[in-house]
Amino acid sequence: MANLVSIAKTVGSNRIVPTISIPHPLGDPTTSVEEQWKLRKHRVEVAVDALANDIQEATIVEVKV
């Protein structure tokens, strides 16, 4: 999971799940606590699913909201 996707690609990460922002990678403090938990859970699920895939080169995993 990375908020700076270009840097993640540069250093050779092969699975890149974009996060939301630098100060709040897995949340949005302008939303309710319930919405933040849903958002965090979804991003982590996407990241765990990405680990199950056989990937040979840098891949940016699409996160559908």
Rank of each mutant, 00 (worst) to 15 (best):
Met1Cys: 12
Met1Glu: 05
Met1Arg: 04
Ala2Asp: 13
Ala2Cys: 10
Ala2Gln: 08
Ala2Ser: 15
Asn3Trp: 14
Asn3Gly: 06
Asn3Phe: 14
Asn3Glu: 05
Leu4Val: 14
Leu4Pro: 04
Ser6Gln: 07
Ser6Glu: 11
Ser6Ile: 04
Ser6Pro: 02
Ile7Arg: 11
Ala8Glu: 00
Ala8Pro: 01
Ala8His: 02
Lys9Trp: 00
Lys9Cys: 02
Thr10Tyr: 01
Thr10Cys: 00
Thr10Asp: 05
Thr10Gly: 01
Thr10Ile: 00
Val11Asn: 02
Gly12Pro: 07
Gly12Arg: 09
Gly12Lys: 06
Ser13Glu: 07
Ser13Pro: 00
Ser13Met: 15
Asn14Ala: 00
Asn14Met: 03
Arg15Glu: 03
Ile16Asn: 05
Ile16Met: 09
Ile16Pro: 04
Val17Ala: 04
Val17Ile: 12
Pro18Ser: 02
Pro18Cys: 03
Thr19Gln: 06
Thr19Asp: 01
Ile20Glu: 13
Ser21Cys: 08
Ser21Trp: 14
Ile22Phe: 12
Ile22Glu: 14
Ile22Gly: 08
Pro23Ser: 10
His24Ala: 15
His24Ile: 04
His24Asp: 15
His24Asn: 15
Leu26Gly: 07
Leu26Asn: 11
Leu26Trp: 08
Leu26Glu: 04
Leu26Pro: 01
Leu26Ile: 15
Gly27Pro: 04
Asp28Glu: 14
Asp28Ser: 11
Pro29Phe: 06
Pro29Glu: 08
Thr30Met: 11
Thr30Ile: 06
Thr31Trp: 04
Thr31Arg: 13
Thr31Lys: 15
Thr31Ile: 12
Thr31Gly: 05
Ser32Asn: 06
Ser32Phe: 06
Ser32Asp: 09
Val33Asp: 08
Glu34His: 07
Glu34Ser: 13
Gln36Ala: 14
Trp37Cys: 07
Trp37Leu: 15
Trp37Phe: 12
Lys38Pro: 08
Leu39Trp: 01
Leu39Gly: 03
Arg40Pro: 00
Arg40Cys: 10
Arg40Gly: 12
Lys41Leu: 13
Lys41Gly: 12
His42Val: 01
His42Asn: 09
His42Gln: 10
Arg43Ala: 04
Arg43Lys: 10
Arg43Pro: 00
Val44Gln: 09
Val44Cys: 08
Glu45Gln: 13
Glu45Thr: 07
Glu45Ser: 10
Val46Trp: 03
Ala47Ile: 05
Ala47Val: 02
Ala47His: 02
Ala47Leu: 10
Asp49Val: 00
Asp49Cys: 00
Asp49Gly: 05
Ala50Pro: 01
Ala50Trp: 02
Leu51Trp: 05
Ala52Ser: 15
Ala52Gln: 15
Ala52Trp: 09
Asp54Pro: 03
Asp54Ser: 12
Asp54Val: 07
Asp54Ile: 08
Asp54Asn: 12
Asp54Trp: 01
Ile55Glu: 03
Glu57Tyr: 09
Glu57Ser: 13
Glu57Val: 09
Ala58Arg: 03
Ala58Val: 06
Ala58Trp: 01
Ala58Met: 06
Ala58Asp: 09
Thr59Arg: 14
Thr59Met: 07
Thr59Leu: 11
Thr59Ile: 06
Ile60Phe: 01
Ile60Ser: 03
Ile60Glu: 11
Val61Trp: 02
Val61Asn: 02
Glu62Gln: 10
Glu62Pro: 07
Glu62Gly: 05
Val63Leu: 00
Val65Trp: 09
Val65His: 11
